[in-house]
């Protein structure tokens, strides 16, 4: 394969993975950065290891936004999400919901077990 063809493939892969390339506008990067705060508990790009806390990748945007707004207003019960949703503006919640809706659902990347002991 010629390098140019390969780079085109890479660009396609970048788009498929939902990542912004060099020509990306600020907005997708902004949404990605905001959503990345959620990855700590929900897994990278919302692909959760073991499914708890739940996976968010590829879920419907309107549904995710409604759930988060429910947490924020207190109409939806939670152990912790009601406290976190209150920390974000509606615009931020929308950007986060949009990011996860655009992320590809799939197997999570778990940390590898150690091959050696310390």
């Amino acid at each position: 394969m010629k390098p140019t063809t390969f780079r085109a493939s890479c660009a396609a892969a970048l788009l498929a993975a939902g990542f912004a390339g060099g020509a990306a506008a600020q907005e997708p990067v902004y949404a990605r950065n905001l959503a990345s705060a959620c990855f700590t508990c929900h897994g990278t790009d919302g692909r959760s290891v073991g499914g708890v806390p739940p996976a968010l990748a590829g879920r419907n945007k309107a549904e995710l936004l409604e759930i988060m707004k429910g947490f924020k207003s207190g109409t939806r019960p939670a152990t912790l999400m009601h406290q976190q949703a209150k920390g974000y503006s509606d615009q931020q919640l929308e950007a986060i919901a949009g990011y996860f809706a655009g992320a590809k659902a799939g197997p999570a990347a778990a940390a590898p077990a150690a091959r050696v002991n310390f």
Binding site: F39, T40, C41, H42, G43, T44, S48, V49, G50, G51, V52, P53, T79, L80, Q83, Q84, K86, G87, A108, A109, A110, A111, P112
Partner: peptide, 28 residues
């Protein structure tokens, strides 16, 4: 922000889920 109302086994399960996800998010 805030804290739990009380400790619970449900949050125990979330705590292990949190751990597996943050480990994956750093090392996976």
């Amino acid at each position: 922000g805030g804290v739990s109302k009380a400790s619970s086994e449900i949050e125990g399960a979330y705590a292990w889920g949190w751990a597996r996800n943050i480990w994956g998010d750093a090392l996976g």
